[in-house]
Amino acid sequence: MRDAFDTVNPIVAFVFFAFALIMPMLVMHPVLLGISLACALAWLFILRGKRAWGYILKFALPVMLLTAVMNPLFNHAGVTILFYLRHNPITLESIVYGVASAGMLASVVLWFACFNAIFTSDKIVYLLGRFAPSLSLVLSMALRFVPLFSHQAKRIAQAQRGAGMGTRGGSILARARNGLSILSSLITWALESSVTTADSMRSRGYGLHPRRSFANYRFDGRDALVGGLLALGMLCTALASYFKLIGIRFFPSYKANEATPLFIAFCVIYALTLLIPVMMNSIEAYRWHLLRSRI
């Protein structure tokens, strides 16, 4: 099934991801990091199902472990010395900081996993096409060339095999030589056909119009709603950081804000903002459920 957030206008989606990715890096408050991590995980499980475990085990966990271990070993700042390891003080603050930065990295990695699922190449080309038309054209052409080249490589290999110069038989050296000759003719073909493509583009009037993209996203009422909620969340974040609600200090001694009612209110707002995609999915699922139950 298509994710509910997938159909949102790419500009709104991009702002959402920018917010979700930059916040953990800017404010390494443990509570906010936990919220960010939980929201990213919830969405990732909706997006990928069981395959989300692969992301967690392969990308997030190693990064977390590395950071959490490395920081206390190399960072000796902080006033609360727990013990000495080969004359180097291991401090409570650096351990806390290591854990916090591990959480930060994990949430960034998981948000990027969601980003990869949502931001397909056509959206990137759509976003870039406005202010970098040439680059986005190169991007979309390169993306198309990759499968084209592998297809052409197969065709060349088949032809070579028909001529008795395949990569299946013969000594290793002969096979390598035949493989290289396949690569060589592939490259020549690719370069020549690129010029043909360019001529064809030119004769169809490339460069006369401003760039337009294949996918045309409208900015509809739902985009406005999502964008408005997002803007509200970002405004609250800016206000919270202006009034020093979410400040945190690790060195020389750890100091975070106490759980004042205002801080808790901000946490709720932050969580709701990051949960926009998850909420959209559940609304969609609920609507589907209603439709089905009516039949």
């Binding site: 370069l191 690129s194 010029v195 493509t197 001529d199």
Partner: peptide, 9 residues
Amino acid sequence: ARELTLIAV
């Protein structure tokens, strides 16, 4: 266009 396609290749 030729430069773009060459870079893309």
